[in-house]
């Protein structure tokens, strides 16, 4: 079926909003219409209404960029310091990676684009970790609510598996990205392990973990606690079970289940 004129007009407007080459679009707003095979009065309408068409570019880009500015202030400070923030955002919009109708998904889509394209990673090897750390708490805070898991018990035993709350994340970074701030956006190169979880109030909390605790929290999800502890050379389970009990009452752990 030949593409309809309506669809070509919509594609032209989307290109006018998202395409990277601002100077070329500014110089000739009809260019995007021409690229869609539009001619005559349709093509002219883009040219004759140039400034008004550019208003759409400005408004739509503003609404797409705002969540990035809000959610990634440290990354923005880092890149602005190098004169690269505008280029980064432009490359992201040009890649058309915002695929979800939910506004809250724009920032995660940006993170996905950074990961997929490795944008800036040669110059800033920590850039992906930094961006991830910046939205970690929001991702945890807004993780979709679900029904409580059933069949779990409250006290951890040596033959138990740890069942994390579905919103909880155990993350490991090669840089201390959670300590970076807008004034000092370059993180120290230091292995960092974080536990991000939702407390009883439904608010996100962040806790720094030792490497051993982080490893235990990951491994004891698939092999019994005593076995995971032994593999990590943790001789005494008493302090471990006491920490796990605390994490359960804080909301990070949903409960414990006997290893089948």
């Amino acid at each position: 079926m030949p593409e309809s004129r309506t669809l070509r007009l919509q594609r032209a407007l989307a290109s006018l909003v998202l395409n990277g080459d601002e100077a070329a679009i500014e110089a000739d707003p009809g260019r995007v219409a021409h690229q869609q095979g539009l001619t005559g009065s349709d093509l002219r309408s883009f040219r004759d209404q140039g400034p008004a068409m550019m208003t759409y570019r400005e408004l739509a880009r503003m609404s797409l960029i705002e969540p990035l500015e809000t959610m990634f202030p440290v990354l923005r400070a880092l890149l602005e310091g190098a004169g690269s923030w505008g280029g980064c955002v432009e490359a992201f919009l040009d890649a058309r990676m915002v695929r979800s109708p939910q506004y809250r998904d724009i920032a995660p889509a940006f993170l996905g684009w950074l990961a997929a394209t490795r944008w800036g990673q040669d110059r800033w090897p920590f850039i992906l970790e930094l961006a991830h750390a910046e939205i970690l708490e929001v991702l945890v805070a807004r993780f979709p609510d679900s029904n409580p898991l059933e069949g779990l018990h409250a006290d951890p035993g040596p033959q138990d598996l740890i069942i994390l709350d579905p919103a909880t994340q155990v993350v490991s970074y090669t840089h201390a990205v959670h300590c970076a701030c807008s004034e000092s956006p370059v993180p120290e190169a230091r292995p960092t392990h974080l536990l991000a979880f939702r407390d009883g109030e439904g608010l996100a909390r962040l806790m720094e973990l030792t490497p051993a605790t982080a490893a235990l929290l990951v491994q004891a999800q698939t092999c019994p606690l005593a076995e995971a502890a032994a593999a990590l050379n943790v001789p005494d389970l008493t302090p471990v079970t006491s920490l796990l009990r605390d994490l359960r009452s804080d909301g990070a752990i949903a409960g414990f289940r006997s290893f089948p």
Partner: peptide, 11 residues
Amino acid sequence: SVDGSCLHELL
């Protein structure tokens, strides 16, 4: 939205 790309603007 156009071709799966969401513009988050009423066009």
